[in-house]
Amino acid sequence: MRRLTMLPVLDRSGVRLMANELRDMLDLGGAIGIDAGKVERIGLAGIQLLLSALRTGAEGATEIRLIAASRAVEEAARVCGVADRLLSELLADAEVAA
C-alpha cells in the first residue's frame, strides 16, 4: 500500500497539492493509504478531499483508505457530520487491534 501523508495544514492550497499527489498515485495504481494523523488544521476543502478520495476508492478499482486521523481531522469530521463516513474504518481497525 502506498502511503500519502497529508500536510499539517490542509487549507485550499494544501488540498490542491494533496489532490494532485493522490491523482498521481492513482495513476501509479495499487492501494493507497492516507495518513491524516499529522494534520493540525483542516477546513471544508480538506474534509471534501478526504471524502472525494474515499469515494474514488469505493467506485474504482483502487483501494483507498484513511489509515490515520489527527484530532483536528476527527473534530472537523464530527462538525461536518461525516465522522461516520471518514472515520468508521479507523474505528473498526482500532477495535480489531484492541
Binding site: R12, V15, S52
Partner: peptide, 12 residues
C-alpha cells in the same frame, strides 16, 4: 462531492 478526477479544491 465528486471523485478525485473531478475534484476542485476551490468548490464547496
Amino acid at each position: 462531492v465528486p471523485t478525485l478526477d473531478g475534484f476542485d479544491p476551490d468548490a464547496a
